[in-house]
Design a protein around this nucleic acid. Structure first.
Lengths: 65, 65
DNA sequence: ACTTTTTGCAATATATATATTGCATTAAAT
DNA sequence: ATTTAATGCAATATATATATTGCAAAAAGT
C-alpha cells in the first residue's frame, strides 16, 4: 500500500523526492519506492525521514487496523 | 543503543525472546539483537513486534533527542 | 546443588534493502 | 508549444538484515 502520509508531509514541506533524499542521505529511488509502497525501509531510515519532515514514526509509518 | 522499552514491553507481557520471536515469525536471535541494539530492523518487523506487544511504533522505537 | 529456561555469541548462508546509472514519462513553468 | 523539473521504471551491483545451527553462560525453578 502506498504511503500517502509520507508524500503529504513531504509536499507540505515543499520538498521534491530528490531534495528529501539528499537531506536524509539516501537515493532518490529509495524515497520513491517507499512512497509507492514497494519496499520495506529500515527503522533508521524511517527515523531519518521523520526527523527531516518534523514528524514521528506514528505520524508517517503507523496504520491503525 | 539498547532498546530498553522493547524489553520492558516484552517482559510486561510475560514473554521470552523465543516466544515473542515465534509470535512475530522471526528468529530468536533477531529479537535478541534488536533488544541489544545491534541492528536495524525493517519497518514491517517493527510493526509486527508492536502488534504482538499491543504498542505503537512511537512507544517502542521512537527516541526524542 | 541440580535442572531447565533464557539469553548471548559465532560462523556461515540467503534474502532483500539500497545504490547507481540511464532513459521515459509526466507535470510545471515560461 | 517548449523547456525544465519531478517522478517512474529497469537492470545490475553491493551492503546488510535475517535464518540457521550449535554451544556457552547466566538466570530461574525445584
Amino acid at each position: 500500500m502506498k504511503n500517502i502520509k509520507l508524500k503529504l508531509a513531504r509536499v507540505e514541506k515543499d520538498l521534491s523526492q530528490d531534495e528529501l533524499s539528499k537531506i536524509v542521505g539516501v537515493s532518490r529511488q529509495t524515497i520513491g519506492l517507499i512512497e509507492s509502497g514497494k519496499y520495506n525501509p529500515s527503522l533508521s531510515l524511517c527515523v531519518g525521514i521523520c526527523k527531516a519532515l518534523s514528524r514521528t514514526l506514528d505520524d508517517l509509518f503507523w496504520e491503525e487496523d
